[in-house]
Every structure is written in structure tokens, then in C-alpha cells.
């Protein structure tokens, strides 16, 4: 894993090695077709079901560097040389200028720096806006012209319009589950994307994923997948979100490191999911039923 630091984190996302991805359906073909036609893609699905991994994988598969915008934060300091893609820490205050760019003060005045979206548009990368509804509403101003036939990015502060390079594709993700109704995606926005729905994998598929990602043997990962399936039954009944495959993998890794399965499930699933004591207790009971 890369040490801390923005630049290095960005390096990591230039997907050089093939990420592990287990196709659950025809999503790969769909995405490829969409990419060829430059149709923007919306990925829908619950937390931790593999949306990001999928884009990473597709980005690798389509052989291009990928811009990853998830978290807002500081703009890159360096504008020289090959384009470093920036990972920004995400929050609900992500504004249009965070995406497009801003002026920085310099000794002799101000200096413009491109935001990540601008960079992606200029280089023609796949640009992935994770959890797009979290961002401020003013970002739609940017998304709309980029996602129809125009493929333009207006930069208001510079009075410019950037035409998207050929390889540019906007991919956004969206979790209809936990966001409140207030934060629903507007129709004018959502109808600009084809929508690929992600669900949790089946028990067998998930077991395979867990086993691959965590290194535990298949028997244990089947149990973990079973736990995931059971816990997801509690969604809307005490849990706002089902347990993600990611969490199950973490639990698997702990088990792989020699942590007792019940304990691993407790810290990796039960406590990670909820603070509600009653629900915790119920999940705990499921855990103790499944693991010896």
C-alpha cells in the first residue's frame, strides 16, 4: 500500500495492474458498449458492493488512466509534466469550483489551476464521480453540458468552454438506499446516464470474492457470505444499509490473520454496522449461530 500523501494516492489510481473483479452479470459488456458510444454511465447500488472496483477494473480494461474524484480537498500543487490525477477527500461541500479549478495566489498575482474534472475533460479520461448526490447542486451546471451531445465543460471564472477530448467519459455512482429523499438525484440529471444496477453478489459469488480478497479458505468465506446474506435481511429493520462485501472481506482478513471467527465478525460486521444495541445483539445472535 502507498504511504500517505495526495500525490501517491493519485498514482495508485492510475490502475496499472488488473484489479480483481468478478462479473456478476453483463455489466462489462454494457460498460464497453456505453464507452464506445460515449454514453455516460450511472452506477447504482448499495455501499461496498463493488461499484468503485468495477470502474477501476473497466478503466484498466479500456486501457486508460482514470481520474478518480471522490473526496474534495486541496488542489494539486504541481501543474507540470504528465498529469497527476488527484484524489480529493470527499464531503458534502464539494462545489463546482472544486471540480473545475480555482485561482491560487502567487507572488505576482493569481494563478489558475485546473480542477480534476477539467483535467479529465482535457486529457480524455474516464472520470468517476463517486456518490454524486452528495455534492452541491451547483455541480449539475457542469455535469449537464458534459453529458449530452455537446460534451462541453464551461469554466465560468475563466470565461472559457473546454471541449471534451475524445476518450472522456463521465461515470457517476449513486446509492439510492441511504441518502434521504432530499438528496435524490434530479431527473434532469439522471436521465443523462444509462443506469447499471449493482446488487450484492449471490452467496457463492460473494464467497469467491471474499476468499480471493482476504485469502481465507472457501469454507470460511461461504460462512461469511451467509452472514452477509442474513444480515442484509435486516435492512430497513434496524439497519439502514446492509453489510458490504468490503466489510465481509475485512472480517475474512482478520480471520486469516488468526482472529477467532466470532470475534472477527463482531468487530468486522456487528459493531461496524450499527450502534443500536438491540440490533447489535440480534446480529450477534446470527453470528453466534453461524460461527462455532
Amino acid at each position: 500500500m502507498a504511504p500517505g500523501g495526495l500525490v501517491l494516492a493519485a498514482e495508485e489510481f492510475t490502475v496499472r495492474e488488473e484489479p480483481y473483479y468478478l462479473p456478476l452479470g453483463d455489466e462489462i459488456e454494457l460498460f464497453e458498449a456505453a464507452f464506445e458510444q460515449r454514453i455516460p454511465v450511472l452506477l447504482k447500488g448499495p455501499t461496498g458492493c463493488g461499484k468503485t472496483r468495477f470502474v477501476e477494473y473497466m478503466s484498466w480494461r479500456l486501457g486508460r488512466p482514470m481520474t478518480h474524484i471522490s473526496q474534495g480537498g486541496e488542489a494539486p500543487l504541481d501543474d507540470e509534466g504528465p498529469r497527476p490525477f488527484v484524489t480529493v477527500a470527499c464531503h458534502e461541500d464539494l462545489t463546482a469550483s472544486d471540480l473545475v479549478g480555482r485561482y491560487l495566489l502567487d507572488t505576482d498575482g493569481t494563478r489558475w489551476i485546473d480542477g480534476p474534472l477539467t483535467r479529465a475533460v482535457k486529457t480524455g479520461a474516464i472520470c468517476y464521480l463517486d456518490e454524486v448526490v452528495e455534492a452541491r447542486k451547483d455541480t449539475t451546471v457542469l455535469i449537464h453540458p458534459l453529458t449530452d451531445y455537446r460534451r462541453l465543460l464551461p469554466i465560468e471564472k475563466l470565461g472559457q468552454v473546454v471541449e471534451a477530448a475524445d476518450g472522456f467519459l463521465l461515470v457517476i455512482s449513486y446509492n439510492p438506499g441511504y441518502q434521504s429523499a432530499l438528496k435524490d438525484l434530479k431527473h434532469s440529471t439522471r436521465q443523462r446516464f444509462i443506469s447499471v444496477e449493482f446488487t450484492y453478489p449471490t452467496r457463492e459469488q460473494e464467497a469467491e470474492i471474499i476468499s480471493h480478497e482476504s485469502g481465507v479458505d472457501l469454507a470460511v468465506s461461504i460462512e461469511l457470505a451467509k452472514l452477509g446474506e442474513k444480515v442484509r435481511n435486516l435492512k430497513e429493520h434496524g439497519l439502514s444499509e446492509g453489510v458490504s462485501t468490503r466489510l465481509l472481506i475485512y472480517a475474512g482478513r482478520l480471520i486469516e490473520r488468526g482472529i477467532e471467527p466470532r470475534r472477527a465478525a463482531q468487530v468486522g460486521v456487528t459493531w461496524a454496522l450499527t450502534d443500536d444495541l438491540e440490533v447489535q445483539r440480534s446480529i450477534e445472535e446470527v453470528v453466534t449461530s453461524i460461527f462455532e
Binding site: V231, N233, H237, S282, I283, V286
Partner: peptide, 15 residues
């Protein structure tokens, strides 16, 4: 009862 209710719900996936 409440714990068992959620437990049974988790197991069966039904209300």
C-alpha cells in the same frame, strides 16, 4: 423478543 424478532428476520428474510 425484539432481539429474537430481528434474529428470525435475519435468518428468514421475512418480517
Amino acid at each position: 423478543g425484539d432481539v429474537l424478532r430481528l434474529y428470525a428476520k435475519a435468518l428468514t428474510g421475512r418480517n
